[in-house]
Design a protein around this nucleic acid. Structure first.
Lengths: 222, 222
DNA sequence: AAGTGGTCTAGACCACCTC
DNA sequence: AGGTGGTCTAGACCACTTG
């Protein structure tokens, strides 16, 4: 039943920008319950095909988008899932005032005190990802007691600190001398950079810039 | 009600790997209908927090993942949404046998005839994305009659060819001479590469490699 | 103010998968 | 084969938002 409603929209009965009938009318037309229509519509809405607004009705999106979903695992798991041996090295940790640009990542007007953690993730003994992270000691005081030689901040945070909001951005950057040395590559090679910033409620948790060695791929199947 | 169930799992009552009670038991405990529980569980399942299997029950995922969704718009729209002027140039189109590696993208054992389309998308007159695309003329015969000088294959396909499956991968690559010349940059600069391959049912539609000029970012907010 | 989608109920039946 | 989650129904009430 739900499949029929899906098909009806996919098949071109309604085109980009068109308004669909109210759920109840569709339910009558198909001879099914309104909640069944609601369920189908929710799926289409999740997939980015339609947009719904109370009182405004349901419209086929005017500009179709491809909505892709990616699972970003803990770095250790990502390596192990490839069948590679995982290693991890803490490079440095220190507590200091953030530069203004890091505070800005969190939408904070002024610098605050945070812990800065630099670390290297290895895959089969080869440098894999270098991460440069700031952790808000105000929101996550426990971090002071965590043995970051043994467990990466990445893993500890994912396992222990739920977040309510997360900004992610991907882009590329040529390796500078610093990154090249740590990753064992030549300066100028193309790095895959992942920036992630998380909050719990309005409280900042962490922001991290992860530099992946060339060859890194992000994959999604829909 | 749904929020209470969400909270219950987030707050650590159940940890990674734990088995949750059956939906019906949870419903009794909370004094709500089973379908309400089912709905809450579905959300958690969609977000990657739990895994459900018929007869197997519901488990908190052992290895938490960050699940991010990205909207990938039509390139023209992506440029216009930034407030930039969009331009587009068809570089070449031809019909020929695919190399073996392109056929392999589709899981085809042998080369087939496809149309190859190279094109450049510009943002405020600056080269923005260079795409190198193969379109299956068997599945999409209409493409022969489309004026690809006026509308990009990207836009025409998204608007006219629904797909049932899509593989996407992102990675980086240093610009070669060819890409550098087209994008107006120096060889060696870091490109953001998007590879997309789509099917309708078992039929191949298109595969494309899009090279984005440095500065390109992919953004998601959760 | 009214019309639309969103949530919830109480119940039935189905489909899949593990045991 | 039985137990679990998945879909569906017919209905009620709620919440948002636009005209």
């Amino acid at each position: 039943m739900r499949a029929r409603i899906h098909a009806r929209i996919l098949d071109g009965t309604y085109g980009p920008g068109d308004k669909l009938p109210r759920d109840e009318d569709i339910a009558n037309e198909f001879g099914c319950a309104r909640s069944t229509v609601q369920r189908a519509m929710r799926d289409l809405s999740d997939s980015g095909m339609i947009e719904r607004r109370r009182k405004g009705g349901t419209h086929v999106r005017f500009d179709p988008v491809t909505r892709a979903t990616f699972d970003i695992p803990i770095t250790r798991k990502e390596v192990e899932n490839k069948g590679c041996a995982y290693d991890y090295q803490l490079i440095s940790r220190s507590t200091l005032q953030t530069p203004r640009c890091i505070a800005a990542n969190f939408g904070l007007p002024a610098p605050v005190e945070m812990m800065r953690v630099k670390a290297l993730h290895l895959s089969d003994r080869q440098p894999h990802i270098y991460e440069d992270r700031w952790i808000c000691t105000g929101t996550v005081p426990e971090i002071a007691t965590v043995d970051l030689q043994r467990i990466s901040a990445n893993e500890w945070l994912v396992r222990n600190k739920p977040y309510s909001r997360c900004d992610i951005r991907f882009y590329t950057q040529q390796a500078g001398r610093h990154e090249a040395r740590l990753l064992g590559i030549e300066p100028g090679e193309a790095l895959f950079v992942t920036e992630r910033t998380t909050w719990i409620g309005a409280e900042a948790i962490t922001t991290v810039k992860a530099f992946a060695a060339p060859g890194y791929q992000l994959i999604s199947r829909i």
